[in-house]
Structure formats: structure tokens, C-alpha cells
């Protein structure tokens, strides 16, 4: 055992055990996990409602990340939200336009939408859906997608997934055509721009929580429960440690330095 890493190892093990246990707990269906209300999610039907009234289309982007690598979970969360949004556009007969940057995401998006329209019994309405692969270049995609939003005068624009420096282009053009915009990204560096330019924004991990709450995916739900318990432990370490330190003892400083 290497000196100075005992407490790290302890916390490492505790976190692992809790997360595995929580995952199992949810999978076995012992308890249904309820995700708290997220105002961005609650605003989705309203945004689509507005598009219905205005007779203008809805735009959706699952972000710019691929389906492999570190940012892949964001893309999958985006696709989960697309599943929900496509059901609503099918139900209300609104035109849906999806713009894609990663070639591998294209079939995934198409299949997801097909499934949603089938479940709503609106298979014929699929002709009203456009899933477009625009370009694999970051800015070329953003320019083309902005062009689509502008030309089609989207009444609502959903941006859910990983975005980088191009996000402002997309969000700003949405503002120009007066679209109701809801965004969400775990790329924390981009959140400030979404918060200022879109009507609602899912911040960081909220993106996954939103995906989990709408699809009831067991893996997502289990992960969220496990992480919540771990956050509880950190909050406890924080509060107790601060109190003990404030009283004048360095017990917790020493404990965490073990």
C-alpha cells in the first residue's frame, strides 16, 4: 500500500460498491426511481405546441460528438431525447428536421424516429421528417445547420448533446428567427453561451438525468441513483469536516490526507 493513498483507496472502494449496488437495485426493479422535475424538459411540449400553432417546423440537433469516445454518452442522451421529441411531433403533425454532423449518428437518428412514429401509429407522417447529414466538418456543419434553421424558420430548436465553439452560431440564428430554443450539454465550457442565448438549458449532468427520466433506461437510472448517493457522501464529508475544522480540530484534514 502506497503511503498517502489510503483514504483515496477507501473512497474509491466505497464509491465503486455503492454505484454497483445502485445499478443492480434499479435493474432488478426493486424500486422505481423518480427523477426530479427539470424545467427544460417540461418546456418541450410547450415548444412543440408553439410550432403546431405557427405551422412551422421543429429543428433538432444531437450535437457534434461521435458514438465512440469520451463525449459519446452525450450523443446517446441526445438521441434519447430525440425519441421523446419525435413522438410529440408525430402526435401533433409537426414537421421535424434533424441535422447531423457525424455519419454514424445518421442511421441511429433515423431508426429512433421511425420507432417513435410507429409507436404513435403515425407511420405515414414520416414523410414530414427530414434527417439531414450536413457535413463532418465542425464549422461547415454549423453553417449549414444555421442555414436550415433560417430558411425553414424553425419555430422550435432543440440542441441536445456535445457542442463546442460553434454552438453560438446555432443558438444565435435560432434567436434571429424567433425560435423557442431548448438546449442541453455536458460540455460545461459551452453552457454559458447556451444559458444566455436559449430559453432553457440543461446544465451538465442534467442532460443525462433528462434522458433517463424520459426513457426510463435502467443503466442511466442506476447510474444517477449511484451518483446521487456518492454526492450525499461528499456533502457529508464537506459539512462534517468544515464543522470539525471550525471547532479547531485538524482531524478531517489529517483523515483526508491519509
Amino acid at each position: 500500500m502506497i503511503q498517502g493513498r489510503q483514504f483515496t483507496l477507501l473512497l474509491f472502494l466505497v464509491m465503486s460498491v455503492i454505484m454497483l449496488y445502485a445499478g443492480n437495485y434499479v435493474r432488478k426493479g426493486k424500486k422505481t426511481i423518480k427523477i426530479r422535475r427539470l424545467s427544460a424538459v417540461e418546456a418541450i411540449p410547450e415548444a412543440i405546441g408553439r410550432a403546431t400553432e405557427a405551422g412551422r417546423p421543429v429543428h433538432f440537433s444531437p450535437g457534434l460528438a461521435a458514438i465512440t469516445g469520451l463525449d459519446a454518452p452525450q450523443t446517446f442522451a441526445g438521441i434519447s431525447l430525440l425519441r421523446y421529441i419525435a413522438k410529440l411531433t408525430a402526435r401533433y403533425d409537426v414537421r421535424l428536421i434533424v441535422t447531423i454532423r457525424q455519419p454514424a449518428v445518421l442511421p441511429l437518428a433515423q431508426e429512433t424516429i421511425r420507432q417513435s412514429y410507429l409507436e404513435e401509429g403515425k407511420f405515414d407522417a414520416l414523410s414530414q421528417v427530414d434527417v439531414m447529414f450536413l457535413s463532418d466538418q465542425q464549422f461547415a456543419y454549423a453553417a449549414a445547420a444555421s442555414g436550415v434553421i433560417m430558411r425553414e424558420k424553425a419555430a422550435a430548436s432543440f440542441l441536445f448533446g456535445a457542442f463546442w465553439a460553434e454552438n453560438l452560431m446555432l443558438a444565435e440564428v435560432g434567436t434571429q428567427v424567433d425560435a423557442y430554443q431548448i438546449s442541453g450539454t455536458a460540455s460545461i465550457g459551452q453552457v454559458p453561451f447556451f444559458v444566455t442565448t436559449t430559453d432553457y438549458c440543461l446544465i451538465g449532468e442534467e442532460l443525462y438525468a433528462a434522458a433517463a427520466s424520459l426513457t426510463a433506461d435502467e443503466v442511466f437510472l442506476g447510474a444517477i441513483l449511484g451518483q446521487d448517493i456518492c454526492k450525499g457522501i461528499m456533502v457529508a464529508l464537506l459539512v462534517v469536516g468544515v464543522i470539525v475544522t471550525a471547532v479547531g480540530s485538524d482531524l478531517f484534514v489529517r483523515l483526508l490526507s491519509l
Binding site: 426511481i33 423518480k34 427523477i35 426530479r36 422535475r37 451538465g204 449532468e205 442534467e206 438525468a209 433517463a212 444517477i224 441513483l225 446521487d228 454526492k231 450525499g232 461528499m234 456533502v235 464537506l238
Partner: peptide, 11 residues
Amino acid sequence: VLSYFFFTVEH
């Protein structure tokens, strides 16, 4: 901020 990111507890 940590408390904001609890998802299984209603706010």
C-alpha cells in the same frame, strides 16, 4: 452547487 445536482430528490 452540489445540492443542485441531486436528481432523485425533488427540489
